[in-house]
Every structure is written in C-alpha cells, then in structure tokens.
Write a protein that binds this DNA or RNA. Structure first.
Lengths: 209, 209
DNA sequence: GAAAAACGATACAGATCGGTATATATCAGC
DNA sequence: GCTGATATATACCGATCTGTATCGTTTTTC
C-alpha cells in the first residue's frame, strides 16, 4: 500500500469497525490490527482516538451525501421524484449485509452531551442531509419546503431506526409509500390553496390537540 | 435505605447513567458510587454487568409500557384517539431535560450483533410496543391494523431519532400531525372501500417504484 | 544519493475496566 | 437475642484501554 493511501485506509477500516461494534467497543488495537498498520502510524495521522472518530465521521458524511446526490440525480430530473428517490438510496444502504443502523445516530448515542465534538459532528451531518431535502423540496416548488423536508427527514429517520432493529428493507419501502402519499397530497392541495376557496370536504373527526 | 429496595435503586441508578453516558462508557465503579453501594453488593444482585443491563432494560420496558398504557387510557376511551395519544406520551418523554434518545435503540446501537442478549432485549421491547399499537389499531376497527401499527411505529421512531439530535419536542408534534392525517385518511377511505366503487379522484402523477 | 520523513515492531506507562477475595459490621427472621 | 444472610470497605487480580517511547527499516523528497 502506498503511504499516501494509509490515512484513507485507516478511515475506512475504522468506519467499518465502528459500524460493526460501536465506538467505545472498538479499540485502537483492533483498528490497527485490521488495517495492518503500526500503532505509531495511526497516531501520526490522528492525534487521539476522538480525532480519528471525527475524521471518520466527516469522511463518511461527505462521501454519503455525494453518493446520495449522484444516485438521486441519475435517477430522475424531476425534483419531486428526486425527493422520493432518496428513499431508494436509503434502501440500498439498509439492505447492505453490513448495515447496523445509522453510524451518525449511533455516534450521537455514544456521545450524548450536546457539546461533545462527536455529537456535534453527527448533528452537522443530519443538518446537511436535511438541507439537501430542503433544497430538493424548494426545487420542486413546494410552498412549505422546510416542512416538506422535515417530513421527509422524519420518514428517513424512522425507517432507519426501525430497520436497525428488524434488519429489513421493508420499513424504508413503507416510509417511501408514506412520502408518496404525502407529496401527492401536497401537489393536489397545497397548504395555501384554501385562500379564497370554499370549504373543503370536512376532515374526519380527529382532535389534533 | 431498606435492603429490599437496594436492587430497585441499583436498577434506577444504572438506567439513569446508561441514559446519560451510554452503556460502555458507564463503568461499574461509577454506578456503585452514584448508588452509594459497595461493589460486592452490586455483584450479589447481578452476576455480571451484562446481567445488570438486561435487568435494567427489562425493568424499564415494563415500566414504560405500563406508563404509556395508563397515560393513554386516562386520556380517552376512543381507540383511534388513543393511537394519537401515544404521541403525547412520547412528547412527555422527549421533553424531559434528561432525554438522550431511546435507551433501547441506544442499547441496540452499542450491542449490534443480532444474537447479543442486549440487542434481543431491546428488540423485544420494540416488538411489545408495536404490539400495543396493533392492539389499539385493532380496537379502532382498522381493517389493516398491522399496517396502521407499523406506520404509527415508524412515526414514533422517526420522531425519537430526530429529537435525539435536535433535543426538541417539535419532531414528535410533527409526527403526530402526520398520524392525524393518516388516520383521518384511513377513516375517510378505508383501503377496501374501492371494492365496487367508482374510480376515485386520480392521484397526482407520482411513481411509487 | 543523501537527508528527512514516515513506517513497522515492540515494549511500556498509567489509568481503567469488570470482577473477586477477605474481613468486619449490620440487619432480618425465627 | 441468636443465627444466617447481607451489607460495607478495601485491597487486589488480570485484562484491556489510550497513548508514548525507542529503535531499526523503508520510503519519499530534494
């Protein structure tokens, strides 16, 4: 292996192990053994284990968002369809044999204090993904792009969490169906369409206290 | 403290610390220090740390499901409204200053192998909660109670995951609004209502590939 | 091709981990 | 009130943790 590749190889190895065993349970010794690298080498590239975690998360953050963008953009040009295509991308991740839940949510789950740099890094990833949803919702000309994005995000997170336990792609497909219904509903009756409109068919009696 | 209370006190202390710092990061020494108990005492009640974790999860599982049932049943007698009331119960948990995400999902996130007893315990909790949703959906006479329950569950999990990062109750309220819309839709147009019906208003053009 | 930098291997430091051993004190039940 | 069970306090075990130090070797760079 060329020396210029060592850093990236360490990040890949660390990410694989963090995903499989978690952050605290994955020791430095295991990482260097799996990477086939000396301990001094690892500590030349990363000052501490936390630094390694942060670099790994940042690397995966960029990589996964780039992959999602590419996947979605190759699938269709229609922004609304692109919002739905994000679920297909997610399903690909979830169906991976190595899927063990969202590594960012897990990272936040092992570093729970809001000021912890690892928590912050995970939070940043979630914000950037949400921003992408909002960008798509905006391009799709939804009047409430932020709300649409929040909803898509909620469905993504729900599907990922359920899939972490059930180890199945089905939750993702189900949340996509919900997204389909939601977006269809929004296209049919945008939230500002009642301005100057007659009353629509009354909703079923359900209090939303 | 009476000796008969020690075990319960240890479980409470352990749960509080697991929730705040995670399972691996919470050491035995911290637990006994916070509980004000000798190490030998802890190990008289629990064979290993894993045993303590399992007992803590099982305790919280029963307690939280009992609390949810009571909360929901005191709120309303209508089963559909009860499905919605589960979100209000969830919002109470999430708005707690000590909320750090679902302790069962976190437990699964730190014990990822499907055969790990801790993972199994977390999975069991999720199944039991889902079964309760299904029970409510069944009582509400939804024709596809299982699907309704899955959907409610998806919304719960999504709201919890998002709230773990944003530390806000808003995701729960948003997912409740989605649940309201969903259940209203199901009441208005149950999935088998098209049998012998004329075509309904065509859906907006959205492929659900 | 020489100097500088990065590598591997190993040993080790100091702290912390889960868990045990021992000896003494306290409580509960008959 | 005696007895057995359970508590406390403390010391300790071996393993493992993150991180460093040493040193000989390889690779990059000028």
């Amino acid at each position: 292996m060329r020396r210029s590749e060592i850093r990236g190889h360490l990040l890949e190895t660390a990410l694989r192990l963090f995903n499989l065993y978690g952050y605290h349970a994955t020791g430095i010794d295991l990482i260097i053994a799996e990477a086939g690298v000396a301990k001094t080498t690892l500590y030349r590239h990363f000052k501490t284990k936390e630094d390694l975690i942060l670099a790994a998360l940042q690397s995966r953050d960029e990589q996964s968002r780039i992959e999602m963008r590419r996947f979605v953009e190759e699938r269709t040009k229609d922004p609304t369809e692109r919002l739905l295509a994000t679920f297909d991308f997610l399903e690909g991740s979830v169906r991976d044999r190595q899927f063990r839940g969202c590594i960012f949510l897990s990272a936040a789950g092992e570093h729970k204090e809001a000021v912890d740099p690892v928590f912050q890094a995970a939070l940043m990833h979630k914000r950037l993904v949400l921003a992408y949803f909002e960008e798509l919702a905006h391009a799709a000309r939804f009047t409430e792009a932020k709300r649409i994005a929040d909803t898509i995000n909620l469905l993504h997170e729900g599907a990922t969490a359920v899939a972490q336990m059930t180890r199945s792609g089905e939750p993702v497909r189900q949340s996509k169906r919900m997204a389909v219904a939601l977006l269809a509903q929004e296209l049919r009756a945008p939230p500002d369409s009642s301005v100057g409109n007659v009353e629509r068919e009354p909703r079923a009696q359900l209090s939303a206290t």
